[in-house]
Amino acid sequence: MAIALVLVLVVIGSVLFHVLSPWWWTPIASNWGYIDSTLVATFWITGAVFSAVVLFMAYCVYRFRHKEGQKAAYEPESKKLESWLTAITAIGVAAMLAPGLYVWKQFVTVPKDATEVEVVAQQWQWSFRLPGADGKLGTSNARLVSSDNPLGINPDDPNGKDDVVVEAADLHLPIDKPVKMLLRSIDVLHDFYVPEFRAKMDMVPGMVTYFWFTPTRTGTFEVLCAELCGTGHGFMRGIVMVDTAQDYTTWLQQQSTFAQLSGPAKVGVLVDRGKVTASME
């Protein structure tokens, strides 16, 4: 008996928790509102199914609990009922899948006018690289990484000379301009994750992965690593600032290019293992 009551309470409690609790996603700051809508639709469909199944169960337990002299019905199957349930389930599933695939299509189709921005991860910090005036990123290779060239940019590639290198510092992005994030790691797996942007993708050493989005809100956003990458994983943070076009230009002018950095007067932080671990503790 108590169990019927508890089952009802589970449903009521879960729904109330969903509606009343303060815990919900962070306000979105990218164009991926569609993802949020698909998620909300999924919440509705699944919530309804959950409540229906559990409440029905509670009713059965209450109504058909054992009493003296009671006998169960004999009912091996019902083709009709089972077919109906199968059909309805299939429709419900399709109703979630179709919009999901539709949005995924957009997610994997990078707009032509997206600017490329490279994120380079290493244990346990983020660096960034923007194409310089030529709009092209130079090639790179982990084999070229050294303390003078922490991102492994190919010094022989003319496209790379004017690349803007932001090492272990904040990334700035202009608002309302689509960006294609090119993700690269020089050591282990990482994952570039900014909750407000909704999108994320693993960074895999030896290859370049990507995703795209358009920032829609100015502000300061925290970058987290979302793929276990060793002891410092939980502390691997970075900052992305979404600026107005004007602020962005100002910031960009203060940055140094690869050519400047690899020249005799070096700026920027060196790959210093002791320092990274120390700052982590």
Binding site: G100, L101, D191, K200
Partner: peptide, 24 residues
């Protein structure tokens, strides 16, 4: 109860685009 609950949240994670913000 718990299986239905967990199975239904599986529909979030299986539906590729919804998985993107939720994965990991």
């Amino acid at each position: 109860v718990t299986f239905v609950n967990g199975g239904l949240t599986g529909l979030f994670l299986g539906n590729v685009v919804v998985d993107v913000p939720l994965s990991d």
